[in-house]
């Protein structure tokens, strides 16, 4: 049997596992993006707040997350926190790796999205807020009705980048045993030692997913951009 046909056979064999792994990857990334958007919007707005007690915690959160590696955050959350818990209470604490992955990735992407949201809000012309206020709207109302809808349209492209980065970075969750795309490949390799074809297949799977996302982003950009063209 030639090398090529062996490789192809491995790829065909591993493919069902990789599809299952992709589902986990998509699940974690989607949840993380969703919660990251909520966290990011809150802390992005918080960073723009005039009130220190809102602003400072947001700045600390954003700087800490953006200034430390995701891998360290994953290990700290998955091993560090249960370790602290058992040292403190004497009981053991087990966190579901997928849940841990969603939580860490949400917290992580929240910090990056916060900066995207902040930049998006600041890119809206000051006159928009003035016009809204001159019509008697409160600051909150003007934010909700006028500023945020425009800012969200503008941040779709960087949000798409964040989505793609998050999807790729979720491969780091392999180290805590999450059976996501990379891990399913690695498990197959550990049984068969077929590193080359399987890693190639894993890479291609990531590529397919990221291309799909960028298409999706381009589509929503077109759909939502209707009124902004001038």
């Amino acid at each position: 049997m030639s090398l090529l046909s062996t490789y192809i056979e491995h790829i065909i064999n591993v493919l069902p596992d990789l599809v299952t792994g992709s589902m986990i990857t998509i699940e974690i990334t989607s949840f993380a993006l969703f919660f990251g958007m909520i966290l990011g919007t809150i802390s992005g707005l918080g960073k723009l707040s005039r009130t220190r007690i809102f602003r400072y915690p947001c700045i600390v959160y954003i700087d800490f997350i953006r200034g430390t590696p995701l891998l360290v955050q994953i290990l700290l959350f998955y091993y560090g926190i249960p370790g602290l818990y058992s040292n403190a209470t004497g009981n053991s604490l087990n966190i579901d790796p997928i849940l841990a992955g969603i939580i860490v990735c949400s917290i992580n992407s929240g910090a990056y999205i916060a900066e995207i949201v902040r930049a998006g809000i600041q890119s809206i012309d000051r006159g928009q807020m003035e016009a809204a206020r001159s019509l008697g709207m409160t600051e909150k109302m003007a934010m909700r009705e006028i500023i945020l809808p425009q800012a969200f349209r503008r941040i779709i492209p960087p949000l798409g980048n964040e989505f793609i980065a998050l999807l790729k970075d979720s491969s780091l969750l392999a180290v805590i045993g999450v059976h996501e795309l990379l891990k399913t490949g690695q498990l197959y390799i550990s049984r068969t030692f077929a590193a080359f074809p399987v890693y190639i297949a894993v890479a291609i799977m990531y590529l397919i997913l990221t291309i799909l996302i960028s298409r999706l982003v381009a589509y929503s950009e077109r759909r939502l951009g209707v009124s902004d063209r001038s």
Binding site: D125, G127, E130, A131, L135
Partner: peptide, 16 residues
């Protein structure tokens, strides 16, 4: 402010 309407040099219409 509800009682004082304002018209700006740069219109500031809501584009969305």
């Amino acid at each position: 402010r509800e009682e004082a309407g304002m018209v700006f040099q740069h219109f500031n219409l809501f584009p969305h």
